[in-house]
Design a protein around this nucleic acid. Sequence first.
DNA 1: CCTTACCTACCTTCCAGTAGGAAGGGCGTC
DNA 2: GACGCCCTTCCTACTGGAAGGTAGGTAAGG
Lengths: 195, 195
Amino acid sequence: MSNLSTTSDEILASARTLIMNGGYNGFSYADIADVVKIRKASIHHHFPTKTDLVRTLVSRYREDAEAAVAALGQNVQDPFEILKVYADHWASCIEDASRPFCVCAMLASEMPALPPEVAVEVKAFFRFLATWLTSVMERGCKEGSLRLSSEPKVEAEAFMASVHGAMLSARAYGMPDVFGVILTPTLQRLSPTGA
Amino acid sequence: MSNLSTTSDEILASARTLIMNGGYNGFSYADIADVVKIRKASIHHHFPTKTDLVRTLVSRYREDAEAAVAALGQNVQDPFEILKVYADHWASCIEDASRPFCVCAMLASEMPALPPEVAVEVKAFFRFLATWLTSVMERGCKEGSLRLSSEPKVEAEAFMASVHGAMLSARAYGMPDVFGVILTPTLQRLSPTGA
DNA sequence: CCTTACCTACCTTCCAGTAGGAAGGGCGTC
DNA sequence: GACGCCCTTCCTACTGGAAGGTAGGTAAGG
């Protein structure tokens, strides 16, 4: 059981990397086959269609994020610190090029061209992220750990947009540190001390 | 001369729309041929390769933006108003689905998978936009029309990221008004009166 | 003996791009 | 003003390769 499903995990992992690079239409079963060292047809055994593959990938991506967010809530209490850890997570992912872009941000940009089943999952991810960030903002507002200038829900959406936009700029310039440059003042603004 | 080059303009216009939908790998010469009502091979007469086509498209997109920005500077003096007009422009484009996404934001997300010639043009667009926004921020800071909490350059990058992130969210949710929801407080924060 | 995992071989469709020709307009020359 | 010439535009017909997906078989393990 432990590494019986390794192949399908490898397929998902390589698909994730490929999507981060070029989006839904930017990779093929042949690309995955090259990486995983398996025949193209064998991928169809694990995921009958490309839609199945990406739907599963995004769905699991959200589940993983949900787990990570729950764990983060256990280890870090302060809402401001939580936002900082979240931003730092992406900063280092982009910096060391391990996960230079969020899969769902990537797919969201292609939304109108996505198979409906995949689009639904992407939407679900955005909703999950917004809901979580909203709860963090709400708690930070109550506890005085965050200084909000709008409703928590709006602040959450604005923060999420900043993160995604910063990713995009870092990629456009080919300068990973741009992400940090953009997010530092964004976090600063939310800090109760103003620094 | 006036409408001699109409066909090549139509090709560029339809390519722009198609890229906004699905990105670089999300459209083909056949798709353009359907829209422009021309044979696939005829497109190659105007743009020998797909790379040529998109490079030209992005380059002209930047030129148009430069002209629009210059015109905006003539008609509107107040830096805060300029940012508002810029945001409103995109809000209405997204709202009426006429140009529901920025071509360069779309292509930037696919950066690593783009032909180098195209990637260069996309980078140039981002640099132009950042430079312009920085100059607006600088003037607004000097004149007191904008309240900045960081250096003009950083504020400009953050503002640009918010715009792009807001576009992404609007698309992900399938709710055009999300763009406005995110940008309203972003502008508010920059307003000298705080409202 | 059945299921799982993987294979070879193949299909259809689509892709970017090429070859080569037809139609027509502009233009200089006789 | 008619002829020949060329350039632009668009066409039909095609190529080689890559796309997603299928058919059917083999080997291993419970």
